[in-house]
Every structure is written in C-alpha cells, then in structure tokens.
Computed example of a mutant assay.
Amino acid sequence: MTDPIALTGRQPRAVRSALAVLEEVVAAGPGVTAKEISAALKLPQATTYRLLNLLVGEEYLVRLPDLRGFALGRRAARLALPVVPPPPAAARAVVEHLRGMVRWGVHLASFRGATLTLVDADPDHPPSESAVLARYPHASALGRLLLADQADWRALARDLRPLTAQTVTGSAELGARLAEVTASGLARQCGELNAEKGCLAVPVRDPVTGALVAGLALCGPASRVAEPNEELVRLLREHADRLVPLLA
C-alpha cells in the first residue's frame, strides 16, 4: 500500500521554503509584500505567490485589508508557547501568605492563551511539570478550571489518557465533572494525576470581563482532598479574591 503522506524528493524543499516565508513575515513585520519576501529569500515570484496562497489558505498568514501585504494568521500563534510574565511581588506575597497558613502545597497558574502554565509553584511541595499539566488538563484540578471555561473543552483535552487508576477518561463523566466546576467555582481531583495526591483549585477572574486569568490550587494527600475541607476551601477562595486586583 502506498504511504499517503510519503514525501517526494521535492517536498522537503517546499516545506523548508514555506517555513522560510513564515520566518520572513515574522522578521519583516506585518505588511511585508510578496515582492519583498521573494527578494529577501531569493525565491522566484511564482513560487513565492504559491507558498503565500497556501499559507493564507491554511490560516498561518492573512492578507491585510489593502491586499498589498501579509501578516501572521491565527494558526501561526500555535507554533510558539505564550510568554507568561511572572506574577507581581504583591501576588506572590498573597500566595506565600496562604502557604504559611496550610500544610499543603500552594500553586498559582496562569491561563494566558488558554494554556495552563505554573507561574508560582510551591518549592516545598513540587508539583507536576507545567508541560504535563498542560498536556493532560483532564487529570488536574487546575486543568479542569481551564476546561470548564471553554465553549468546547474537547478542543483542549484531546488525549484523555489514564495517568492513574483513578483518572476520569470518559467524556460523559468528565463533562459532568466540568459542569460541577462551573456550578460551584471549585475544581477537585483525588489521585487522578498522582495516585497519592489530590488538589483543590479555584479560579481568578477579571472583575470586568469575567475572563479566566489564573487559578489557585491547594495540593495534598488524595484521601484528605476527598473530604469536604470547608475551612481550606474558604481560605483558598479568600486568597483568590485577593489576587483578583493583582492579576486581572
């Protein structure tokens, strides 16, 4: 059987040329013309136009309104992770204050660009890596805050992999859990990311737009996370409220 994606001898060169066109648009900035790209890369104009039309069709580039130049498109933004600045000192002080009140790990995450990134991880209670949390949001409390905020959570949770025996991997069950997060403003997971640990997480939202900007999590023994923990949840919500004017 013929491989449907097998590359011919010319295709690698075409791929390199397309990537070079993208790099040139980044370097030259919005409004760069096909003629300028052709000259900079020493490509034939006909080849340049074909590559530009292909990249526009795939939404990696867009034509500017005057139709004379090009700029990066929607899909180009997915080629790089968003740059997330560290939280301000006042926000870190709020997180540190909560750490001083509980024995559990306290972590602050950013949701910029609909991507989960740890921006203040508890050094005394090392969490899972940001890359793991971002790749498997279905298995973490912080990830569920992000998923519950999406119009279609399946677009972000494409791999419902069982990381432990407790990980929820069924779409219907996960959808029900996310509905609970939306209703209560609290996400919980018990032993789904790490069999011995669990987390509680609450959102930090922009007070004007309501947009989800960050999440504050408490992580401890899975058996303890499964308990009501009303006092811990109260502390968690209070400190998330303090973070609102600092992070929004």
Rank of each mutant, 00 (worst) to 15 (best):
V204K: 02
H138V: 00
S184Y: 12
Q150P: 06
Q166Y: 10
A222M: 00
R154E: 10
D122A: 05
A214M: 02
L156P: 03
A195R: 10
A195Q: 10
A179F: 05
G220R: 09
T209F: 13
T115P: 03
D122Y: 00
V168T: 03
A139F: 01
A211I: 07
R205I: 14
A176Q: 14
D120T: 05
R188W: 02
Q166K: 11
A139I: 08
A211V: 07
Q150F: 04
C219L: 07
A172N: 01
L118P: 02
V208Y: 13
L160T: 11
L145W: 10
K197P: 00
L186G: 11
P221E: 13
S110T: 00
A114I: 03
S110L: 00
P162S: 14
H125W: 01
R144S: 04
T169P: 05
L156E: 01
D120L: 04
P221W: 07
E196I: 08
L118E: 02
V202P: 00
V208D: 15
L193Y: 10
T169E: 01
G210R: 11
S184L: 15
E180N: 09
F111P: 05
T115S: 11
A217L: 03
D149E: 15
T115I: 13
D124A: 15
L133P: 01
A157D: 03
G210M: 12
V202L: 06
T164E: 04
